[in-house]
Amino acid sequence: MDFAVNLMLGFVGIVLINNFVFTKFLGTCPYLGVSGRLDMAFGMGLAVTFVTTLAGALTWLIDNLFLIPYHLEITRYVCYILVIAGAVQLVEMYLKKFFPPLYESFGIFLPLITTNCVILGLCLFLNLWEIRSFLMAVVLSFGAGMGFTMAICIMAGIRENLEMADIPECLKGAPITLITAGLLTLGFMGFAGMIK
């Protein structure tokens, strides 16, 4: 029972309180780049969630079954990036073969995910936080992806309305997006301290 509660808390924590975009600045590039339209943002979010869960689970397994027992920690970064690039490639090939419509709708996002910091960041943090249970690692990976999806969807919703707003000429585009993101983080700071 304790374990189940811990899993729940871990999930809520990583989605709301330690949201990767708002507190750790991971995935800021797509967060600002792809958040122009809500449907695209949602597609990107789902693709990232899927790959994050897969890559988080795989890197955890490799780390704990292979790298740590054989003292190969020095190759960790190379292994992680290989796993992530491989996972993205696999997902891309699988979708292309079996779900062509879904593949079409993801379009350019899939290859871009390789260089999304959320995924590598999550794998590194799983290691840094010394998560020693596989189930917890999977739940946290999924949570990180969901947190990213939530953040990018909120941002896209705001930006669709910003198009109508009267902004000073020099702040149009990226600057106003960054300031909006700042205000959003301020809002999310309200969640801090909710879970001890």
């Binding site: 600045f25 702040l171 600057p175 106003i176 960054l178 300031i179």
Partner: peptide
């Protein structure tokens, strides 16, 4: 805090644009 980072960078970008 994160707020400072986003807002400062936003304003700097605005200034550079101007």
């Amino acid at each position: 805090m994160p707020v400072g980072a986003f807002v400062t960078l936003g304003l700097i970008l605005g200034a550079v644009n101007q």
